[in-house]
Write a protein that binds this DNA or RNA. Structure first.
Lengths: 150, 150
DNA sequence: TTCGAATATATCGCGCACGATCTAATCGTT
DNA sequence: AACGATTAGATCGTGCGCGATATATTCGAA
């Protein structure tokens, strides 16, 4: 009888049995892989995700970025200020609705994209997974997230 | 031609194509699911992981906990102090090697385990996955982590 | 045995991340 | 027009999480 056959409550209370721990530690591992790749761009990993969204579509509100990233304004506001200080974005109050802040790429921010296109390849290589396996895993994990948030 | 068939560098630079973002956001989602379950235990999610390790095996050093959790002493020391303040653990210098700190469950910490056995079931239900799918996904994500850390 | 290297933990500064709360702007109803 | 309710961001306090560094202990080689 192996450990994985023990399915009562007590046996489930072991670290290795936790999907959550797998995801938690995989996230740390990914962050560590990204760090050296992003240092050349002078971006942290969450900052990079914001930039990716802006390269997809420029001139977005704080709220719409937060909705895509599942982040609150209390997280985004300070982070966006750092990106602004770095010169990659501008934060501009919307003239027709002054409650909103529009986040816009600067020329420097737009130019950064050329350096950033190499980053995903570096990560893909580190996973040692084929494109199909990688995409399947991505879809499963995304689907898990969506189920949990529902 | 669908989006997923675009495999050149530019097309890879979209948020939805990132395995890393899937893991990052799934981790956030899991943390949110855990929060209400753990509030009754007066534990945060990382604190809960430490307690799980100690319930598996009491009297571990800071270093061995960190090795299992992939965390540094700079993260663990303050966290363990909070667990000590909460009354769940004791931090004791090892008499034979004073460099080491042994982390031990208090009676309160041991008693907490009885409440904690219900937590994994709550999470499993939230995933809406069968035991087999869940275990397969856990194994795949763990394996990804191990590949990345190698 | 003594002194330099290695080891274990702690401390510090910074950047996420969240919940609670605040402020300012806009919307809706009267 | 006016005012209560809603909305969008910002601020604050707390807790991870890391890299760099500090301190104390132990180990090892001369």
């Amino acid at each position: 009888m192996t450990g994985t056959e023990l399915k009562d409550d007590d046996a489930m209370l072991t670290l290795d049995s936790f999907l959550c721990f797998a995801v938690y530690s995989a996230n740390h591992a990914l962050t560590r892989i990204y760090k050296p790749l992003l240092e050349e761009l002078d971006l942290t990993y969450p900052q990079y995700l914001v930039m990716v969204l802006l390269w997809e579509k420029d001139d977005q509100t704080v709220g719409s970025l937060g909705e895509r990233l599942f982040l609150e304004s209390s997280t985004l506001t300070p982070m966006l200020k750092r990106l602004e200080a770095a010169g990659y974005i501008a934060r501009v109050r919307d003239k027709t609705d002054e409650r909103q802040v529009r986040v816009q790429l600067t020329d420097m921010g737009k130019a950064l994209r050329r350096k950033a296109v190499d980053v995903p390849r570096g990560l893909t290589e580190a996973t040692k997974l084929g494109a199909d396996d990688l995409e399947r895993l991505r879809a499963e994990v995304s689907s898990l997230r969506d189920t949990l948030l529902k």
